[in-house]
Write a protein that binds this DNA or RNA. Structure first.
Length: 290
DNA sequence: CACTTGACCTGTCCGC
DNA sequence: TGCGGACAGGTCAAGT
């Protein structure tokens, strides 16, 4: 569920909370959560200082004062939560969604030299973090294949449309979820932007007109920007770097709103399955062409 | 190469 | 109340 807006929200939170902090201890549960050998962790991670936090697609990069970077993918249920020295949990005025940490889904605990912590929690264990040299990051398969950032200043509707040329025979929803077409879109913002563009998610890419792609591009940018402004969407697990929820879900028009009225025409939102994913549409505004 | 499906996991919800 | 099964969805491997 962390998609571009959620990962971006975590990024800005971490930027505010952990830049300049020095790492003193790193602990993890299994090698899958942190697959580096102890020697590298000791040599390139412990004792270093955090200098920069970057994001590309749904991947976070924490640059260290050495030429090393920790890259993190939250997948569906990953959380990166900072806690100060006086650890606060649920019920505290800071109103975290989660309680005391570490808990049973904590995979990695990073202790800073000032006594504060960064926890990597992941209920379903799909997420991972990995230490590698900064120069190596762009060389990993995902980075080589991933498409443009949809909110980049230089990215235009024409360029967006062109990205879909490779995927003519699949559904627009499958193509939107394909990270090599455009970066950072997941199930929530795919459904929300397709509703905005009044496109049925099962529409064949090759049947979509240039004008429709232009509308879809602007709707996608709209929902991503709004979601960043609202701190992302918390459906179940997502929290920001302070453990707090995002509020985009309150503004969602179709996602997880089956049975409610379409804000455009009043028809009842339904849930269907497209590209192997739960998919939410207005059956009146988003007619299947063909 | 384009495209689809299943695997990876665990917690939750639904029907019996 | 307990239990089995479906479901949640990001990415990759393996299949057609």
């Amino acid at each position: 569920m962390p998609e571009l807006p959620e990962v971006e929200t975590v990024r800005t939170g971490l930027e505010r909370l952990i830049i300049g902090k020095q790492i003193s201890v790193v602990e993890f549960d299994t090698p899958k959560s942190f697959p580096n050998n102890a020697e590298d962790v000791k040599q390139f991670f412990v004792g270093t200082t955090i200098v920069r936090i970057r994001r590309r697609a749904k991947i976070l990069m924490i640059d260290l004062s050495t030429d090393y970077t920790v890259i993190i993918h939250l997948k569906m249920t990953g959380q990166l939560v900072y806690r100060g020295k006086s650890s606060f949990g649920a019920g505290h005025p800071n109103d975290s969604l989660i309680g005391d940490l570490p808990d049973k889904s904590t995979r990695v605990t990073i202790t800073f030299s000032d006594g504060s912590y960064l926890y990597f929690n992941d209920q379903r264990k799909f997420g991972w973090m990995k230490l590698m040299s900064t120069a190596e990051v762009p060389m990993i398969d995902f980075m080589k294949r991933v498409g443009p950032e949809p909110l980049a200043d230089s990215f235009t509707a024409a360029a967006f449309t062109q990205r879909f040329a490779r995927r003519k025979n699949t559904s627009i929803k499958a193509a939107l979820l394909d990270q090599s077409v455009v970066a950072g879109v997941g199930n929530i913002y795919a459904d929300e932007s397709l509703w905005g563009a009044q496109l049925h998610p099962a529409t064949r890419v090759g049947d979509i007109t240039r004008a429709q792609f232009t509308v879809l591009f602007s709707e996608l940018q709209f929902v991503l920007r709004l979601a960043i402004e609202k701190g992302g969407s918390t459906d179940r697990n997502y929290v920001n770097a302070e453990g707090k929820k995002g509020s985009y879900i309150d503004f969602a028009r179709v996602f997880r709103r089956e049975g409610y009225d379409c804000p455009r025409c009043g028809a009842s939102i339904i849930k269907i399955r497209v590209a192997g994913r739960g998919t939410h549409i207005c059956p009146v505004c988003q007619k299947q062409s063909v």
